[in-house]
Each structure stands twice: as C-alpha cells, then as structure tokens.
Design a protein around this nucleic acid. Structure first.
Length: 419
DNA sequence: GCCCTTTTTCCTGCTT
DNA sequence: TAAGCAGGAAAAAGGG
C-alpha cells in the first residue's frame, strides 16, 4: 500500500487537502515509530512540491511508484519537519479542551522532538482527552510515559496551561502581541529542508512550501476552493517574481526573513493562498500587461472567504486595534520574548533597531490579517509617524528608528522596569 | 454619506 | 547590485 494510495481520490497532490492528509499520515506514522528512509520522504515531498507549483518537472512518483515506501516502512527523517508542519494547532486551544486526538497529536510532536522510542508506549494511554490529562501530576506522567518523556510532556502541558490562564487574566492587546511572538518564534526553529536533487533539477524545499496553516489560518483548513487575492489579478513588475515563484507562510520565519544583517532574503508575502495553479502563474508578458492599480486593494476576497479570516465582523464602534507603533513597542518592551526580532539601541533615548525586519513585518501582517505585509510597507507606515512625532528619524542608520515625543509606554519610568 | 485618520500599496529616486 | 530609505500619490477601511 502506498502513501498516495491512502489519500482520497479527489485530493490533488500538492493541494491543501493533500498536504493536510499527508501531514496527518506522517504524524501518525512517525508516532507509531515505524520507519521510512529519508530519500523516500524526499521523493514524497518533492512530488508534492513540484505538483503544487506546476514546475513542469516530470512527476517522479507517479512514474516510479516503486519509489514510494510502504506505509509501515515510513520513517520521518527530520523530526523537526513533522513536529512543525502542522503549526502546532494545540497552541491555540486550551489544554483542557483538547480532544483525545489532539492529545495524541501533541504527544506525537513531543515524541518526535525528543526522538523518544514510541514503540514502548501503550496506546491505552493515548486515548485520554485534554481534561483528563490536565489532572495528572508529574509522577503520574512519569509513571505512564517514563522518566524521559514524562517530565517533558508535563512541562509542556504546564506551559500551555499557564499561557491560557495568563491570557484570561491580563490585557488582551499586549497578550495578543505576546501570543503572536510566541507562535512566531516557535516556528523560527524550523530548519530548512535539505536541497533535493532530481536529475539536473535542484529545488530547495523549505517548510514554507508545505506549512500552509499558520496560527491564524487554523480554522480555515477546509477543502473549499479559495478565491485568490487580487494579487493574482494584478501584478506589479517588481512583485511578480517573488510572489509567484514560491509561496510562503506566516508560520515560516526562517533566516531569510531577517534584515540583511541576519542574512535576509526577499519576503514572500502571498502565503495564505496555497492553491496556486498554472492559471495563477503568469508569463512575463502577462505580468507587465496586468499592472496592479495603486492603492490598497479592496477587502472583498477576504470577506468572501470568511473561512480564511475566520474572525467575527468588527463592530463599527469597537475600539481600534493596536497601532503599528504600539505593536513595535510591545515587542521591544518584552525582550525575553522578541528573541532577536528587534533590539534597543539606546533604551533611554528610545532608539531601536529591526534585526529581522521581514519577520516583524510578517507578524504585523498576521495581526492585521494581511498576508502580504512586507517590511517595505511596514516601513512606509513607520515613516508616516515622523510627521506626527510618534517616531523620530535616525539619519544614516538602516533599520533604526527612535520613539518620538508623541509615543508612550516604552520609557523605563512608564513601565516601571529596568530593561 | 461625508470627513478624518490610519494604514496599505505602488512608485520613483536616492543612499548605503 | 541589492537592500533600505524617503516621500508622493491613491485608495481602503474604521470611526466620528
């Protein structure tokens, strides 16, 4: 039996549902400690990737079915891949509300990350739901999962529980930023998959091309076709290449999202719409013909696809969300959480620097439910703050800004802590 | 519905 | 040469 054989017939390889099923299969397979050789995994991933972007490279798998491993010889060669590929949905749900399946998946991630031999586990303990799990103390965990995995699971569970308790206690705005940081940084650890060679073709496959569910997109995992953003209709000359040669995801955050100093690459914002078909990959001539109009594109596609941006409609009189400068400030005043995204250059003067500019932009985009946010756009918004004296110019220094006299909440005296 | 504010998007030119 | 900066222009969208 082949991996692809167990997928639903109507799940197109490379499509969202295909990846979802593939992901689930991988997770289950790895959890039950069966093995697959890494070249086989590479083949599967390559297949999904090539099919997804219609590169024209021959369909290796369909032509060589023998390359596919049987399901019980699968082995996840890169534990980080499988443990991160699903964006760890359980970070969005209180552990008390986890279903047995959720618990199983959570355990699975830890099994993979700790390289624990899951074959020693009894399945009988894997049918507990989150509520039952939360009742267990450290000793009980060790009793069931052993001295290696038990404490690990216990610690992780406590973290999740604490996070949700804190969330219900403290300010929602600040928490949102912190949560965003947490989710974001969790994904920073994901290593790039190795470069895969097929014949003469060499394709660098990264997690961003597989992980299409960021933390905000979790509820959107449906099989319904999605209407592409207007970006698929209008293309600017300087955007098209990066936007259609690959897809990305807000849950990606690799080193290539940083500033030049952190080895940054081009941000690739159109990531929440993975259903890229041939029809969306335009030729150079088409690109130059179909220029995107100036100004902000209408929100039509987002509202039409409420499953993508699954959030309640904003009340007209609801208070505005956090402003950009406040979002930046919140990152800065939590240095233990921002982990190298930004740093203070001069804490007292309010001078700060973007270290991973594109990553911060992606976070801002996540917050605003805007998948195409880039540092370029973010920085434009930042420059508007000069006039209002929320920010001051710092001449001659790239990625460096300074809080102005109309900003607040960042001074040591104001927040009452030494940083 | 109008107006204002706050972005967002695109663009050109310049600097590092 | 690429990345970042500066700022104009236009538009979206929320709120008064």
């Amino acid at each position: 039996m082949h991996l692809l054989d167990i997928l639903p017939l109507n799940s197109k390889p490379g499509g969202r549902f295909f990846l979802f099923v593939f992901e689930l299969v991988c997770k289950r397979v790895s959890f039950f400690s069966v093995s697959m050789s890494s070249p086989c995994l590479s083949s599967v991933l390559t297949h999904a990737n090539f099919t997804m972007y219609e590169t024209g490279i021959p369909d290796v798998l369909s032509q060589q079915p023998s390359v596919l491993p049987s399901i019980n010889t699968l082995q996840i060669s890169n534990p980080a891949y499988s443990s991160n590929i699903n964006s760890q949905w359980y970070r969005q749900v209180s552990p008390h509300c986890w279903t047995a399946d959720n618990v199983l998946e959570w355990i699975s991630d830890h099994v993979e990350s700790t390289k624990f031999d899951a074959s020693t586990l009894s399945l009988a303990y894997c049918t507990m739901d989150g509520h039952t799990f939360c009742q267990m103390n450290l000793e009980q965990m060790i009793g069931i999962f052993g001295p290696q995995l038990g404490p690990h699971l216990h610690e992780s569970l406590q973290e999740h529980k604490t996070k949700y308790e804190l969330q219900s206690l403290s300010g929602s705005e600040l928490n949102e930023t912190c949560q965003l940081l947490d989710n974001f940084l969790d994904n920073l650890n994901f290593p790039l998959l190795s470069t895969i060679r097929i014949g003469q073709a060499e394709v660098a496959v990264s997690k961003r091309e597989f992980d299409h569910r960021d933390d905000y997109d979790l509820p959107s995992l449906t099989m319904e076709p999605m209407t592409p953003l207007r970006d698929t209709e209008y293309l600017s000359d300087n955007q098209s290449d990066s936007e259609y040669s690959s897809s990305s995801n807000s849950g990606m955050f690799f080193s290539n999202l940083g500033s030049p100093e952190s080895g940054s690459g081009e941000s690739d914002p159109e990531f929440s719409y993975p259903l890229i078909s041939k029809g969306h990959i335009k030729t150079e001539k088409e690109e130059s013909r179909l220029k995107r109009p100036r100004g902000r594109p209408p929100k039509i596609s987002r509202e039409r696809n409420s499953s993508i941006y699954d959030c309640p409609k904003k009340n007209k009189h609801a208070p505005r969300g956090t402003h950009l400068w406040e979002f930046i400030r919140d990152i800065l005043i939590h240095p233990e959480r921002n982990q190298g995204l930004m740093k203070w250059e001069d804490r007292r003067e309010g001078v700060f620097k973007f270290l991973k500019s594109e990553a911060v932009a992606q976070m801002w985009g996540q917050k605003k439910k805007n998948s195409s946010m880039t540092y370029e756009k973010l920085s434009r918004a930042m420059r508007y703050y000069y006039k209002r004296e929320i920010l001051e110019r710092v001449d001659g220094r790239r990625l460096v800004y300074k809080f102005g006299k109309n900003s607040s909440g960042w001074k040591i005296e104001e927040i009452g802590m030494g940083m």
